[in-house]
Amino acid sequence: MRSPGFWFAAPVIAFLTLAFALPIGIVAWTSLMPPRTFDLSLPPTIANYTAAITEGYGRPLMWSVIGATFTTLVTMLLAWPTAVILHRHAGRWAIVVAILIALPVFISESVRLFGLSVFLMPRGGILAGSLQAVFGLQIGSIQNSWPGALLGMVYIHFPFMLFPLILGISLIPKDRIEAARDLGANRWQVLCEVELPLAAPGLAIGALLTFVLCLGANAEAAILGGRAVTVITAAIEQRFGYAQDWPAGSALTVMVIAITAAIVLPVLARLDFDRLTKR
């Protein structure tokens, strides 16, 4: 008899086989077709992969990786104290604050970014307009710049870090922290030796989600960034869109998936959660 783990995995495996195997197969196969063709029965070629390497896609990829890394780190720094406060100190208010934080996420991303851009707009924007009307102050704006896009990424992805982190912090038994304190550990030692390892599953999964979603993010650079830089998803969309070049777009997609996997999977595999949480 197979282990229960297999049986629990079976429905998910069955679903992904039915619904995901075909799309990924189509993309992989299309990536081997000659550039700018729509016929899937042509002889395979690696032309799209060589073009992906030689045609300056490194820059967009670099911006995406920088943006994802930056956002993951910043959201982590913002979310950790918030999660600690909500879990340990907020008491009955925790659920209220959690709902308050979750509510904005129900507005679709493009609309929230639109709101942020209306707020940041120079002159007639809500911030600039109010400052001008109330204090007679004139200010600049970070709209249409890469920092503007980064602000949008942090804003959009904060909940993806926060909620896993709250779940992770809820795994830390209170008596462990007190025991460590009794043994003379200072705050820093408690954080590094007790809290971080015990909350690692939440931290790792929050970081994984944030990083991966930011790598694929496009709307922030488009709406708030004024295309100051081109991120990799925007470059891929250009291939599928105005270039009408599905094979090249597919090859870039395959490469992005491979690069994401190369960054994320080793980290995921190295984190032995059971060892971390049970010692």
Partner: peptide, 16 residues
């Protein structure tokens, strides 16, 4: 168009 668009999109990627 294909040749020109590739130049155009490469210029976009090189921006920033």
């Amino acid at each position: 168009y294909d040749r020109l668009y590739d130049i155009y999109s490469a210029a976009m990627r090189a921006r920033g």
